[in-house]
Structure formats: structure tokens, C-alpha cells
Design a binder for these strands. Structure first.
Lengths: 131, 131
DNA sequence: AATTGACTTAGAGCTAACTCGAAGTTATAG
DNA sequence: CTATAACTTCGAGTTAGCTCTAAGTCAATT
């Protein structure tokens, strides 16, 4: 099956503009064109896009994703670099998760405070960020 | 105890520039000045800054943080709005954590693949993002 | 009295990641 | 044959969040 840019946009919850931007930035060098010059996405391209979205949504900059894709196209000589990239990125993602969990504690603490004070709205914090 | 902007920057791993930027954006209306016009941070301000960093690091836009701080200074009439903001933000943070966890699976799957292929570097994926 | 260093403001500049508009091409429906 | 819709490129514009520079103030040291 072949898909147009707007079908892909729909499927990945992106805009066609964004997909063209990704292409321009070198993230989609493998996408083929028909005689009219229109992009023709294949199911194989969907795997690439899923991966690109995964890396993007975990905070990897587009330039680094581009680099990774270049490595993939270069072949086996870049295998170890790619593996190392995933190792480093995994560490980053774990850190993000830990940071979120830590910050969630603060938010939950605040919520406890507001849940209490909103039922008994007396003597609330006007100028204090604590408690 | 009173602290200068550079001491605060050091403590919160920000630059003095960034702190002035936050002040300009309305995040630090409570910070006092000495006769020379220099900012004088107190321990109470540290609580505010911790909270601001928490919200910022969980993806809350600076404009919304500013709004929250305005609400705090307005007093009890905004208690319910503040509580609702924390509820909404909590949902956001949980979503971020779930998304990260989901994406981490993809990364771990990739790592498994690269761990295998890097020990037996034969027939690697040259043009496929899958498997 | 002069130098040094840390602060001040105002405002310009930067980067990432889009986001949009203009002008043009092509395939299909009427 | 023409109108419409969906695509194309190019390049300008936008937004968030800084980041930096210039020019100036002020307190403390030499």
C-alpha cells in the first residue's frame, strides 16, 4: 500500500507541513515520489516514522535523529555508534522519568494542601510558596 | 539570610540572566531589593523558586506559572482555581510519564536488537527501521 | 581617587521546532 | 475543457525560552 502525505499526517497526528519540514531536515530521505513528484509513503516508511516520533517525543533533537538516520543508511560500520546512541538516549529517558516522578511528589503535596484548604477555606497561603 | 542573584543562580543551576528573565516575565514579583536596587532573595523566595522550577521542569509554560503566582498573591478567592490547575497539571505529568514509559519500550527493543547484532555483526538493517 | 567586580535595565539576538502563505503543478470529476 | 482538490517548493514568520551585549550604578579594595 502507498499513502499520501495527508494520510500519513492524519495517522501520526502531525500536519503535512510538519512532515515536509521533517523531510527538509533530512529525516525522511527514504520516502519515494511518484511521476508527479508527490511523496508516496509505504508501510516500511511507517516504521521509520514511528521511530522518529518515539525519538522526538522523548526529547531527541531533530539534528540527532537526522544523524541516526544517516548512520542507518551508511550500513554496518555505524552499528556500534547507533547502539551507543540508544544507550545514551535510554539514560536520558530514565532521567526524565525520575525527574517527573520527583516533581510529581511536589505537585501531589500541593494538591493535598489545596484539597484540605478548599474544604475548610480558612487562613490560606497568600504569600507563601511552602506548605 | 539574604542572597544575591548569582548565589541563587548557583543554587538552582540557572544563570543570573535566566532569573532576571523570569522576573521580567512576572514570575518573581515578591523578590525584594536593597537601596542599590539589587535583588535580595530570602529563604521564603527559595520555596517559590523550587516550585517554579518544578512547574517549569514538568512542562508548564512560563505564562501559566505567572498566572498561578498572580492567583497566589490575590488571596483566597483563587484557591479553587489553583487547586484545579494542580489537578490538570497532575494529569499532564502522569500522561508524560506514561508516554515516556511507552517510548522506553521501543528504545529497549532497539537496544536488544543492537546488543545482539553488535556481537554478531552480520546482515544488519541497512534500510529498515523495523525489527 | 581610581580600579574592580557584581549588580542593574533595555533591548537585540539566537535556536528549535514548527507554521504559514504564495505560486505553481497535476489528476480527476463534471 | 475547465474547475477543483491535493499535492509541490521556497521562503518568510512565529513562539518559547532563553542568551547576550551595552551602558550604567554602586560598594569595597588599593
Amino acid at each position: 500500500m502507498r499513502y499520501t502525505i495527508s494520510q500519513v499526517a492524519e495517522k501520526f497526528d502531525l500536519t503535512a507541513h510538519t512532515i515536509r519540514y521533517y523531510d527538509k531536515e533530512g529525516l525522511l530521505p527514504f520516502v519515494e515520489r511518484n511521476k508527479a513528484g508527490n511523496r508516496q509513503f509505504s508501510d516500511k516508511d511507517f516504521d521509520w516514522l514511528k521511530l522518529i516520533c518515539c525519538l522526538k517525543n522523548t526529547g531527541m533533537p531533530i539534528k540527532q535523529i537526522k544523524l541516526y538516520i544517516e548512520w542507518c543508511l551508511q550500513g554496518d560500520e555505524t552499528l556500534e555508534m547507533r547502539r551507543q546512541m540508544y544507550l545514551d538516549h535510554r539514560t536520558e529517558v530514565i532521567k526524565q522519568m525520575n525527574d517527573l516522578q520527583e516533581n510529581l511528589k511536589t505537585i501531589d503535596y500541593k494538591l493535598e494542601f489545596y484539597d484540605t484548604i478548599c474544604n475548610i477555606p480558612v487562613n490560606a497561603d497568600k504569600l507563601s510558596a511552602g506548605k
